[in-house]
Simulated assay, not measured.
Amino acid sequence: MNTDSSLLAQAREWQVLLHSGRATAADHLAAKAWRERSPAHEQAAREVDRLWALLGQVQPPATVQPVAAQAPQPPRRRRALRWSVPLRERRTVAAGPVAAPGRLAGLVRRRGDGAG
């Protein structure tokens, strides 16, 4: 007997719902009523029942063990994104505070040399 594909799809939906752990008592009663609606419904439900039973006999795939259990590393950022000031400007800005004490010391020495 050739079962209508739409009835098989409905039977699969009932099967999944009833085995999902979310089905209520009303769902079970509705599934039973759906099966009893016609011989074609019952046939579709039996075909899905057989398939479900066969799936229970299939061996689950073997789990693959990772080669080395390492924590995932965060993505590396490109160095160019770390600086808000381009390199050429950064050297000029950085030289200012470093050069200022040297200039100040030169001024103090000059005044000291002339005073003493």
Rank of each mutant, 00 (worst) to 15 (best):
T3L: 05
D4P: 10
L8D: 13
L8I: 15
L8R: 15
A9C: 00
Q10T: 14
Q10A: 07
R12V: 08
R12F: 12
E13G: 14
L17T: 12
L18Y: 02
L18C: 06
H19E: 13
S20Y: 00
S20I: 01
G21F: 04
T24H: 11
A26H: 10
A26F: 06
D27M: 03
H28R: 15
A30Q: 11
A31W: 03
R35S: 14
E36M: 15
E36P: 11
R37S: 15
P39D: 14
A40K: 10
A40D: 14
Q43K: 10
A45W: 00
R50D: 10
R50I: 08
L54K: 06
P60T: 07
T63H: 04
V64Y: 02
P66W: 06
P66S: 03
V67L: 07
V67F: 04
V67S: 07
A68M: 11
Q70V: 13
P72F: 08
Q73E: 12
R76T: 10
R77E: 15
R79S: 02
R82Y: 11
W83K: 05
V85I: 09
P86W: 01
R90C: 01
R91C: 06
V98T: 09
P101G: 01
P101L: 07
G102F: 15
G102I: 11
L104W: 14
L104C: 05
A105M: 11
A105L: 15
G106A: 04
R110F: 10
G112H: 10
G114Q: 12
